[in-house]
Design a protein around this nucleic acid. Structure first.
Lengths: 230, 230
DNA sequence: GGAATAGTGTCTTTCAGACACTATCTG
DNA sequence: CAGATAGTGTCTGAAAGACACTATTCC
């Protein structure tokens, strides 16, 4: 099997559908997808890069964030593999396969990023019906479906817990948490059912006096502050 | 970007966890995983091959079936991407990433295959606690989890329908269909609940006389024969 | 007190799980 | 008729969805 070296190999691209929730913690958060303008061909596309010299997908994705998106991720990123695009001539420059990934990031990590976060509409399409180049529309749709599936409330079978991708900084109120889930899935949730199902996965923030810390309410009764349990 | 050619590229392996249900239609079908003996290093492993010269994953998988497994798939195969293995030195011969796939096949397609179909125990491990080489234990576990998830009965949220991978040839009785699902998931199902949930996805086989065709019972009352609806 | 939001009690509907009964075949 | 399997009716419990009420804050 030393003829392994003799055969041509594909370039392996790592394309990233970077998703975030803007204004998490605010009254009207929004799910957004980062797209970048590019030329040759002209249009908008997702950031991506090629696997180089014994690097991993996570390292390559990290490099894409630093070099092409212009941000400096504070923690280890967790790209989620969606599918492989392997049509033999999908890239007319060379033989390239693409490993499409979803990459959820908190809005704070995207400060100063190159590109535009485009709002994702409730039906899963992009605001303004924007079309992406190459097969990136499919990647975007798969990424949105992936994150939505994990933010749905389906306690009986899938028990993902509160804000699994960490869009919302701790501590938070149940209202803030619910708004984030609603922003991701694009539909409204009942506050009572939502609280009932989230509470087992949350622990209240306790102050020095042993009392539960409350949010400083703008209007109405202050709410208890929580963080993710365990 | 014409320097695209200058960088080294990884070999891309397609590893296949080939799953089948033996004796589907019989009273005691079993979920099995095809493993192959190999040398250097000695042990058992999953079949696989490398992406060559502008081929797709499906084509490569098809070639693996023909050349390494020694079978001739009768229809287009549908490998299910599980995950990428990308540790830089996981293969000590060269830089290689592996795209691990599950590939469900009806037993008839595996006639004459090289390798052993090893029984999958209810807990998901292999009979005899066999250990596979390389990272193939993880691939096997992921493949088993993938197929089990799709054969579970969870009508409310996931509505996959009867025997989505076609392990069981049509037409079949509800008992045969249930035995196949039980073999895949490793647990028993109630016949009444199972029938209630499968019936909407099935249509009875109707004979020339307009009557529902019945199985030729060995013992007891003959059962109606069905095929997948639509 | 009034407006606003937090938090809880409970009713209804749905459905998975379980049990039991009837139906129809063979020998 | 006995044995075996097919097929259906129905009860129960859990949980999602929905509604309503009470609680606590600011103004």
């Amino acid at each position: 099997m030393s003829d392994l070296e003799k055969f041509p190999r594909p370039a392996v691209a790592v394309d990233l559908a970077i998703l975030t929730v803007t204004a998490a913690g605010d009254t009207d958060p929004e799910l957004r997808l980062l797209v970048q303008d590019r030329t040759d061909p002209d249009g908008i596309a997702l950031p991506g890069g090629f696997l180089r010299e014994r690097t991993t997908v996570a390292e390559t994705a990290d490099g894409v964030l630093r070099r092409k998106v212009g941000i400096d991720p504070s923690a280890t990123i967790r790209p989620r593999l969606l599918r492989l695009f392997d049509a033999p001539h999908r890239d007319d420059r060379t033989w390239a396969v693409s490993a499409a990934h979803a990459l959820p990031l908190p809005e704070a990590e995207l400060a100063g990023a190159r590109g535009r976060p485009v709002r994702v509409l409730p039906d899963g399409r992009l605001e303004g019906a924007e079309r992406l180049l190459f097969d990136h529309d499919e990647i975007a749709a798969a990424a949105i479906a992936d994150v939505r599936e994990r933010y749905e409330i389906r306690l009986r079978y899938v028990d993902v817990g509160p804000d699994p991708d960490g869009f919302l900084p701790e501590p938070f109120t149940l209202l803030q948490l619910r708004r984030v889930h609603e922003a991701v899935i694009g539909t409204e949730l009942h506050k009572d059912n939502f609280a009932r199902r989230m509470r087992p996965h949350l622990e209240p923030v306790v102050g020095d006096d042993g009392e539960v810390v409350l949010s400083t309410a703008q209007r109405g009764r202050p709410a208890a502050l929580y963080r993710r349990a365990r």
